[in-house]
Design a protein around this nucleic acid. Sequence first.
DNA 1: TATGAATGAGATTTCATTCAT
DNA 2: AATGAATGAAATCTCATTCAT
Lengths: 216, 216, 216, 216
Amino acid sequence: MPRDAATSAGAPAGSPHAGAAPARELRARGQRTQRRLLDAGADVFARRGYHAARVDDIVKLAKTSHGTFYLYFENKEDLFAALAAEVGDRMTELFDALPAFGPGPDGCAELEGWLTRFGELYRSAGPILRAWTEAEIAGDSVGRLGADAMRRFTAVIGERFRAAATPGVDPALAALAIVAMIERAHYYALTDQTPARPEHLAATLARVTHAAVHAP
Amino acid sequence: MPRDAATSAGAPAGSPHAGAAPARELRARGQRTQRRLLDAGADVFARRGYHAARVDDIVKLAKTSHGTFYLYFENKEDLFAALAAEVGDRMTELFDALPAFGPGPDGCAELEGWLTRFGELYRSAGPILRAWTEAEIAGDSVGRLGADAMRRFTAVIGERFRAAATPGVDPALAALAIVAMIERAHYYALTDQTPARPEHLAATLARVTHAAVHAP
Amino acid sequence: MPRDAATSAGAPAGSPHAGAAPARELRARGQRTQRRLLDAGADVFARRGYHAARVDDIVKLAKTSHGTFYLYFENKEDLFAALAAEVGDRMTELFDALPAFGPGPDGCAELEGWLTRFGELYRSAGPILRAWTEAEIAGDSVGRLGADAMRRFTAVIGERFRAAATPGVDPALAALAIVAMIERAHYYALTDQTPARPEHLAATLARVTHAAVHAP
Amino acid sequence: MPRDAATSAGAPAGSPHAGAAPARELRARGQRTQRRLLDAGADVFARRGYHAARVDDIVKLAKTSHGTFYLYFENKEDLFAALAAEVGDRMTELFDALPAFGPGPDGCAELEGWLTRFGELYRSAGPILRAWTEAEIAGDSVGRLGADAMRRFTAVIGERFRAAATPGVDPALAALAIVAMIERAHYYALTDQTPARPEHLAATLARVTHAAVHAP
DNA sequence: TATGAATGAGATTTCATTCAT
DNA sequence: AATGAATGAAATCTCATTCAT
């Protein structure tokens, strides 16, 4: 699960991302064009992955020209960073809303509710997240965004483990594992042709997580 | 987590992978050259990722030439497939050895022992796995390998969940989640600069997994 | 050393150059805008040279837009031609004022006086001249301007050599050499970080030129 | 007059310039290809100037491909630098051979002899020198080469002026002026359509220089 | 068995100029 | 009179793969 994008957190309306070539004020038309490029980018990245995506494809889909592309973005990476930042923002928001689920069945239900929302977000942003993982692996700088968002998430889960203080369990590691599980499970469930039914994902993950955190 | 490599399972000594250009018997020198290329490939893929890895880098590291590269491998993907197959073999072996850990403390200890071995393998093969993920995302055919090995792993864990029959828990999904957790936790713990201590990884994962599977 | 600009010699007030897109009468505001573009152009050409200068730079410096640029000038070359014409005018004027310096110390002093004025002009117009040289080399049509102004200069110097009639000296070539010297010496003295003191340039060049022309 | 190229002064045979992409040892074929590219480059730069020259033209003329070009040179500038270095080497050699011409007719004859050789070199290398001037103007890094070669030349001439100690003459400036004259006179005489006869160039410049340096 | 020179399709990027407002 | 978004041709550069030796 990518991270952060705190950079664009408070960006002024009208400049959806921070790294654009010139920090120009955009008029209505420019805004629409930029939006078209972002949407086209999301589509192409989703279908081809970060590396295989060609600026040419994006431009064609957005029905505009190469020149226009470079008017709004410094390069392919810059456009991707903008998309990632958008996703990152929504992730951060969601993570901050993670409830302090208690040991009882209520806690489990709360968790399930939150995981449902997470699943929805993941479904819409998944393609970007996948490309993000790819970029991350390749060591591109964009990949390095996002750590913060996840850290917050991990911190909350870590608190629960710390409270439980199970011997042999490193709370930070355990939290990391749970977070990793939630992210990857969504990844596999939504992309892979798993025999599993994704509609039960929130319930299942909630129970597993709850059991792991509030182990006897 | 990738899989398989059944191709090379019983392959004749001297041809560690199936897709090499000519299916010829290699003499000692040829073997060494091919091995050098494989090792160089592993190194370069690990450092740069699949897409960013250039044949030139591999060839330079192996102290050989482009021509020689294409003597032993059909293309970049072919070399990667050979590496993936090697890893896949070892993974399959390990997965088959997963104990049927029971609900008691003994089961947890068994699980921890197995996870320790998994960690060792991951440490050595991890970089290839990472590159694999990248290739997978990009939709390259190599990426499609690997699912099988994981399926076996998932099946065993799934059995446990099925036995427990917790209401609301889809055994297949839960197993997928646990497997994903184990894989990704290793990934993050070994690559990221987590504040956590990786030496406690096996113990922590064992406890978390055990608790999740044998929930009250 | 460029020349000419006869084009703008008697041009009507309000249109400092000949090639502007529409030959319209400009109001006060238009005049100011055009002037701003010319000044910005002079600056940018000076700093980057003709080819490296981008219309975008000029427009930004002039705090106006691309559209406006093409309202006043046909293209980049046209703006440059306008600038060159301005310089050419002043050069022609100065060359026509070259005194018929005699062999005695008075002639040398006259020459020094003239060279002082030349130096002042060069200091202010030099950057354009440099860009001019570049354009000339590249074979752009603008480059072909300028030869005339220099020819007049050369003619006067040539007269002196013809009078002296030194055996082995081709008067035209000698004059060309002296003119070239004066131009390039200023160029190097004013741009390069020569260890020499430019304030002595007029005196030194006067003596060298005088000695060369009125050799015993 | 460009400068220096001391960089390639002692370059090993087989690598005619210092800045090539990889410092590879070239086999016979590679050598020929690289030579073809250099020659094609010289031709294209001469005809179009540095900026207008397209790698495409060079490649076509050399009957090779873009890929090959970038095998031997990092970019256009790199190829140009290689050419400039070749010229610079020959210039440096020549400058070092400048005789310490005395005040008598013998000194003038010595000078003429040297200028004849200079003219020959200039004729063959002129096109590169012209492009060099253009690059220099544009502030490209290549342009900054060459100052050294000229400095040596200037130093020798400067010595003569220092010996003469004419009042009002700054020896360094005077030397600079003479050097500039010799260079530019060749430039104009060989490129422009001067009415002058270039075959008298050496004689004329020798006399003018001699008179200027050994003024009464 | 090995080499490394050569290729060329394709990717990214730039910028003078036009156009709709 | 002014704007700035849009264009697209052209330029540069990369790299997997082939080929001649």
